[in-house]
């Protein structure tokens, strides 16, 4: 209804992942860097699927 949920979820996880990656690179297993990359990739895929879904519906 209204919003494709994959868009906000994808956006949130992409931002979240990038925050962890940046912190992992500049901060003092580097779990922030590794898990940040995983979450950013997941978020990007989710976001792109959401955009594709929205475009198909329109």
């Amino acid at each position: 209804m209204g919003i494709d949920i994959r868009l906000p979820i994808g956006a949130m996880f992409t931002i979240l992942g990038l925050l962890l990656v940046i912190y992992g690179l500049v901060g003092d297993i580097n779990i922030n860097l590794i898990w940040g990359l995983v979450l950013a990739a997941f978020g990007a895929v989710m976001f792109l699927m959401g955009r594709k879904g929205s475009a198909l519906r329109q």
Binding site: M1, G2, I3, P8, A11, M12, L16
Partner: peptide, 14 residues
């Protein structure tokens, strides 16, 4: 903060 912004954003968006 990011989590709370998105949670509330979904509510406002709907």
């Amino acid at each position: 903060l990011l989590y709370f912004v998105f949670v509330l954003g979904i509510g406002f968006g709907l």
